[in-house]
Design a protein around this nucleic acid. Structure first.
Length: 391
DNA sequence: TCTGGGGTCCTAGGACCC
DNA sequence: TCTGGGGTCCTAGGACCC
């Protein structure tokens, strides 16, 4: 049996735990400092009760509830809390997997299963114990789903949210899957759901009954994977808690579209710098840079290029992004949003050090130390100050 | 008036190598 | 000179997740 542990309204709950004044009140956590031009990253259950949900623009949320409390997201708090919760769960001694910042899975083996498909009381007792410890230690609630595999356990965790436990057993599986729309299943998004509906698959039970051949014919590898995850009875694979990232990027949506090339270049420079700083923090250097632009005329434009040497210097990343941008021609297109992403990493400890790079590296080290000590943005390239609208 | 920001994985075609 | 078959790397784009 697998237990899927899912924090309830995680970011919002952490903020309410830190600031008791926010307890019991409608609250949203936004993606930016300012409460306008942001979207809801997490909503407290008090806000959800009013019809506010994540993904909604904050303007819309404030229209529904003018006294809404707003807190800008601060990743470090959630990462810290997430890490402590992971430690707590690992303390039980089962195979544990970190799924995402607010989700964890443990494999309790056969102990959770009783012979005739009845209630696996051991797993339920364990789930309640974990939930109460999380509540006691962090003052936030969690919901737990219990089932024979990860995908079904994750599905189950949503059934009695918030602050509840749900168990899928052989005895109740069909009944519950029949009541659950197929798009609730992780891995079934908008496009896949559309295909399923055309095939007459409406509920999770409809999907559960299909053969692997049928799913492969209609969805390719994705269908085959879905079948495997849905029917799997394998134990949890040990996974690395902190694997190296595959890509690191930053993007930003401007308040309005602009064609001002200096403005756009300054933003690219800033984003490149932010990416470089994060790469250095993680001891990584990247060979591939990717530029993404979005505008009314161009739609989504992406261009990536791989260079022979890896870098984590914001200035160099910026130069490389400009190479990508030249694919657009000499004219700067009207731009609404832009992003810089790096990938194809090597660890800096394996990187050869050339003499001419040494002074550049000590400069970057000094910049990082200053920003570390006095806060991000204490020192930055002058090229970024081209416009007063920069944060 | 579109609607943020951070990611992963998969597919498919082209270039290039043996 | 043409042709086959096997493989890797790179780029672009789509779908999905939190």
């Amino acid at each position: 049996m697998i237990l899927h542990i899912d924090m309830d309204a995680f970011f919002a709950s952490v903020e309410q735990a830190i600031n008791p004044r926010l307890k019991g009140k409608p609250l949203i956590v936004g993606t930016r400092e300012r409460k306008l031009h942001t979207v809801v990253c997490a909503a407290s259950y008090e806000a959800k009760a009013l019809g506010i949900g994540s993904g909604m623009s904050s303007e819309e949320a404030f229209k529904i509830c003018p006294d809404l409390n707003f807190v800008p997201a601060e990743q470090s708090k959630y990462i810290w809390t997430s890490g402590r919760i992971l430690e707590l769960i690992k303390g039980y001694g089962f195979e544990t997997v970190y799924v995402s910042i607010d989700e964890f899975q443990i494999d309790v083996g056969d102990q959770g299963q009783s012979p005739n498909g009845g209630c696996p009381s051991y797993a339920v007792a364990l789930a309640e114990d974990i939930r109460s410890k999380i509540h006691k230690n962090f003052n936030i609630t969690a919901s737990v789903g219990i089932a024979k595999n990860c995908l079904l356990a994750k599905l189950a965790s949503k059934l009695n949210k918030p602050n509840g436990v749900a168990v899928l057993t052989e005895a109740n599986l069909a009944e519950i899957l029949a009541k659950t729309p197929v798009e609730k299943l992780c891995g079934v998004g908008e496009k896949t759901a559309e295909i399923f509906h055309d095939l007459g698959i409406k509920t999770c039970l409809d999907l559960y009954a299909k053969t692997p051949k049928f799913l492969e014919r209609n969805l390719g590898k994705n269908g085959l994977n879905l079948y495997a995850s849905l029917h799997s009875e394998e134990s949890l694979e040990p996974a690395d808690d902190d694997p190296d990232p595959k890509s690191v990027g930053h993007s930003y949506t401007l308040p309005r579209s602009t064609e001002n090339p200096g403005f756009i270049r300054a933003w690219i420079r800033l984003l490149a710098d932010m990416v470089g700083e994060r790469l250095r923090q993680q001891g990584l250097a990247a060979a591939t840079t990717h530029l993404w632009l979005n505008g009314p005329k161009i739609g989504n434009f992406g261009a990536q290029k791989t260079f022979p040497e890896a870098t984590n210097d914001g200035c160099e990343i910026f130069r490389r992004v400009l190479v990508n941008m030249s694919k657009l021609g000499p004219q700067t297109p009207k731009t609404r949003a832009l992003g810089v992403t790096c990938s194809s990493f090597t660890h800096t400890r394996y990187l050869p050090l050339f003499d001419q790079q040494k002074s550049r590296e000590s400069l970057l080290e000094a910049v990082d130390r200053i920003n570390d000590r006095y806060g991000d943005g204490s020192i930055y390239p002058a090229a970024i100050t081209l416009t007063r609208e920069m944060p």
